[in-house]
């Protein structure tokens, strides 16, 4: 019977096992990894689950010879800086590969520079080359709104967009295009390129993280680098985050990473200052309260007339 199913000749009343198909695709593993490593991002995860379900059901339908055409999976990720757009895109390539939607499952990440040429006739081959490299995988265009510069009507970005559109339509089976950028700029980009908007089926908006989510992100980041927070430091971090979030140029997980990197610097400096004593492994992996408290954020947060934090 399995043979018959594989050939798309399964009889209408024969049954196929969705569970077995699900397990065979190993998709569970990727999803778990997604849940584990990416904090929050509820709407994104839901959408990825939906896409995974659709592809899986599609595969079963094909076994009965029901054709429905490959769904378009070009996506648009909008969200503030540091909300995980690139990370999710990378994961998306893996998921689509597991589901057999893309053949190779690699991701080619490009920006305007890689697509748009410097002189007449340079753009088309450059864009085509990138597209060819991305075939069988995912083409991730970061800061995609830069492609279109309305203030310069002779800008070559438009040419690049047109080639992209053509490939997104004609080579739908060969590659998935994911655009990413900040919400308002992407909206403006789509307003001036309606063709682009209509060819993208999934518009995903990445929400900002809350304090508790940022804290779990910090813990995961530290865990990956074999550090841990002392209890007091964890408390300090909890106070640090809301202040940092109110400061300008806050970019979610990226700011957290930078903050932690600076805390590591201070930790190293502190250990170095006390080099006359013997260090243990615990000393090396523990980030103390003072390492977090040393941050300029505590001072600056207050300078800007923020309410006094409890910590002293």
């Amino acid at each position: 019977m399995l043979d018959a199913i594989a050939k798309g000749t399964a009889a209408p009343d024969e049954s196929v096992d969705l569970q077995a198909e699900f397990e065979a695709s190993n998709i569970d593993e990727v999803m778990d990894k997604l849940d584990r490593e990416l904090v929050g991002l509820k709407p994104i995860k839901t959408r990825i689950r939906e896409i995974a379900a659709l592809l899986l059901v599609d595969r079963l339908r094909r076994k009965f010879g029901l054709t429905s055409g490959a769904p378009t999976l070009h996506m648009n990720f909008t969200g503030n800086p540091g909300t995980g757009k690139t990370t999710v895109a990378l994961r998306m390539a893996e998921i689509l590969h597991r589901l057999g939607y893309v053949r190779e499952g690699h991701m080619v990440a490009v920006t305007r520079d890689d697509l748009v040429g410097q002189y007449v006739g340079h753009t088309a081959p450059k864009t085509r080359e990138v597209i060819k490299r991305a075939m069988g995988g995912v083409l991730f265009i970061d800061e995609a709104y830069y492609l279109y510069k309305p203030e310069n009507e002779r800008d070559y970005g438009q040419e690049s967009i047109e080639i992209l559109l053509q490939c997104m339509e004609n080579n739908r089976d060969d590659l998935v295009v994911i655009l990413a950028g900040y919400k308002n700029k992407m909206d403006r980009f789509f307003d001036s390129n309606p063709g682009m908007r209509s060819r993208i089926a999934h518009h995903l908006d990445f929400p900002d993280y809350g304090v508790s989510e940022l804290k779990s992100i910090a813990e995961i980041m530290l865990g990956e680098q074999n550090y841990r927070l002392s209890e007091a430091a964890a408390k300090a971090l909890e106070e640090y985050l809301p202040i940092r979030m109110r400061l300008p140029h806050f970019s979610n997980a990226r700011s957290v990473r930078n903050g932690l990197d600076r805390a590591r610097l201070r930790q190293a400096n502190r250990l170095f200052a006390s080099r006359n004593r013997v260090l243990t492994k615990t000393d090396l992996i523990t980030i103390e309260e003072s390492d977090i408290r040393g941050s300029r954020v505590f001072a600056e947060g207050k300078l800007e007339g923020e309410p006094e934090t409890k910590a002293r």
Binding site: R103, P125, E129, I131, K132, R133, M135, G136, D174
Partner: peptide, 17 residues
Amino acid sequence: YGNPMFDLKDPAGILLE
């Protein structure tokens, strides 16, 4: 015909050329 194609992962790009 065109440039040599490096770093490709999938034959679709070459078949296109």
